[in-house]
Structures are given as C-alpha cells and as structure tokens.
Amino acid sequence: MPLDDSGSRLRWGVTLPLPGLPLGAHRFVVEALPGLGYGDVWTAEGGGTDAFTPLAATAAWSDSLRIATGIVPVHTRGPAVLAQTAATLAQLAPGRVLLGLGASVPAHVTDINGIPFDEPYKRTRDVLRFVTRALRGEYVAGDFDTFSIAGYRLPEPPAAPVKVILGALRPGMLRLGFTEGDGAITNLLFPQDVPKVLAAVGPQPPGKELVVKVFVCPTEDRVYARRAARPFLAWILNREPYRKFHEWLGHGELLRDSHERWAAGDREGAQRALPDEVVDALFVSGSPEECRERILSYHLPGVTTVQLYVSATREILASPAALLDTLARLGPGA
C-alpha cells in the first residue's frame, strides 16, 4: 500500500451509502471493508441522506473503521448541535470520529432549507472555532462574527479527541483548515491540480489531514459513464464555489462554454459543453484496475487519505459478491 511523505500508509475510505443500495442493506459492505484494506467510511450531506445516520450504523456494525463526515454544512445546524452530534458519535466510536465541516453551496443551504447563505467563510471559521473548543470540554460564551453564544459546555466531552477538518477549495479555507483545524478535504480537481492545493496549504504539521475525494464509475462502458456523470458535473461545476475553484486552478477557459450556457438557462447545453476530458478526469471510469491507477495519481506527498465516491452500476449491484469484488479491485488491497 502506498506511503505518504512521513512513511505513514495512505488511508482509503468509501462514501456510504452507495447509490442504489438502501442504507439498511449496507452491513455486509461495512463488515467487509477492513478486510479489503479500507479504513474509513465517509458521508456527505446535500439533498439526500443525512451525514450522521450512516455513521451511527457503521459504528454499530464495525469496531475498527473510522467514521467521517465530508462534509456537513455549517449553516444548517447550530454550532452546539454539531458539537453534540460529534460527541455522541464519539461514544459509539471512541477515537474514530472525524467531523468534516464546510460552507457547502447555496443550493443545499438556501434553496432546500430556507437558510441564508451568508458570509460562508466567516460562518465556517466561527463554527470551527466553537466546535473545536466545545469538543475539548471548554465553556464557550461570547460573540462570534456570525452568531452569539450565551454559554455552553458539553456535559460529556469525548475522552478521545475528535478531529475537525474543513471542506476547502481555495487558499483561504485550505489555510484555515490547517491552522485552526485538523486539516482539509478537497474534491473535483484534476490530479495535476494537487500540487497547487498543497502549495496553498504550506508545511503540514504532524497529524493534520489532507483528504482528496475522488468520484469513480467503475465501468468500461465509457459512453454510459459519461452520460451518468454529466448532469452532476454540470450542476456542481456551475455552483459559484466550484466555478471560482476551477478559475483559481486555471481551468476557466476549459469550462467557459458550460458556464455561459448554464447562465443562459440552457442546462442541457451546459452538460453537452463539458469537454470529455473534464468528465473523464473528474469522474474516473474504466475497469476497476484502470480506475485504481488513476485514483493513485492523486496520491502525492502530503495527501493522507483518498475518499472514494463509487457510482454503483447495475453490474456492481447485481450481487453482494460483485460489489465486494469491485471494491476489492479498486482499493488498497488490490
């Protein structure tokens, strides 16, 4: 298994629940993951499954996997509720909880929750500061830039530390994650973009995390994979945070046609305007072995964890054996 620059092994994680498989049917997957070399189960939260319920189920089904959110929006839950939830999970999985927080996008905050997407950087910074102090058992009170706390202390702070990292796309949030948190998680970038992210992070103190989330559609039917990926990629790449992210990375011209069509209300045209090279790079496809080789291209010194989002094809979901075989061929034990 690959090593990072400190000699530590690269961690591998899988995002659950897998699309097309009900959460209650995931126990066999969770129980198999350690034997396949995976160390983490990750969740995300947007308009579907919440971030915490799958982690509670994972903690009940496994006594070894780390459970991690990647990410929970900072606007949609109060700071104390976030601290309480992380501390409660830590009772189920002591020393194995990683809380990933982030600004998310207005579509997940305002459009479906009716909450203003105000000052995302400051809100993320303030929630990070509150949650890290609360999880250490400190009494927290006073005014933050985006909220005020009359006074709060966790009745039972975690005995083992809970890491708190930030979803981060550009230098300000990346540096915040590493200076005031335990690191950052980034996604939807090309392998050749990783050095720019690492340069923005700067020297990484021991114990900090840089997680790269990689989207994977393990099928050799490239036409199917591109057709499945385009709606999601057109939607997410035309959200302002990701548009600015790719402009910073230097891909503005590559995506300009898609951006212009999206702004004009032509959603189908925005999908078609995404170059095949973008779709193939940001949503990896091919045989599991081909996908694994491309996943490993993200592993540069400083990257501590690869988080896989696996788009489960019909063939993969045909049987438990097929699903586990694909995860085995994709992952660290291959």
Rank of each mutant, 00 (worst) to 15 (best):
L330R: 02
F232H: 15
K163I: 14
D193Y: 13
Y242M: 11
R170W: 12
R243T: 15
T53P: 00
L282W: 04
L255G: 02
P22A: 06
G286R: 01
G100W: 00
G331D: 08
A322E: 10
L3A: 09
D280Q: 08
D126N: 09
L308W: 03
I295L: 13
R261N: 05
L98N: 08
Y139E: 13
G286Q: 04
L176Q: 06
D257N: 14
R227D: 06
V212Q: 01
G331M: 12
G7F: 04
R125S: 03
G167R: 00
G100T: 11
H299I: 06
K122Q: 12
G35R: 08
P106C: 06
R123C: 04
H251W: 07
R170G: 09
V29C: 00
G39E: 10
A44K: 00
A107G: 10
R66K: 14
W248Y: 15
Y298Q: 07
P157K: 02
A200F: 08
E289F: 12
I115H: 08
L55G: 00
T53A: 04
P195A: 06
W235M: 15
A199F: 06
L296R: 15
A25E: 14
L3S: 02
E240G: 11
R133K: 13
P19I: 05
V105M: 09
S64F: 05
E209Y: 05
F215W: 14
T326P: 09
F215T: 06
T186V: 00
L166I: 07
G35I: 12
L101Q: 11
Q271A: 04
R314D: 03
S297C: 13
I295D: 01
G151Q: 13
P195I: 02
V162W: 02
T304I: 09
P301C: 04
I71A: 05
V164Q: 02
A103P: 00
G114W: 05
F28T: 01
E45I: 02
A322I: 05
E180I: 14
R136E: 13
P22R: 08
D221S: 13
V279M: 08
V140N: 05
L89Y: 02
E290A: 15
R294Q: 09
A200N: 13
T110Q: 14
A160G: 06
L237A: 08
E289Q: 14
R314T: 05
G177S: 13
P332S: 08
T58E: 05
Y152M: 10
S287L: 13
M173D: 00
R239S: 14
T186G: 01
Y152A: 14
E209A: 08
T43D: 01
A312N: 06
T43L: 03
S311T: 15
F117Y: 15
D280F: 08
Q192E: 15
P205R: 12
G95W: 14
L10Q: 00
L249S: 10
P241F: 09
L323M: 15
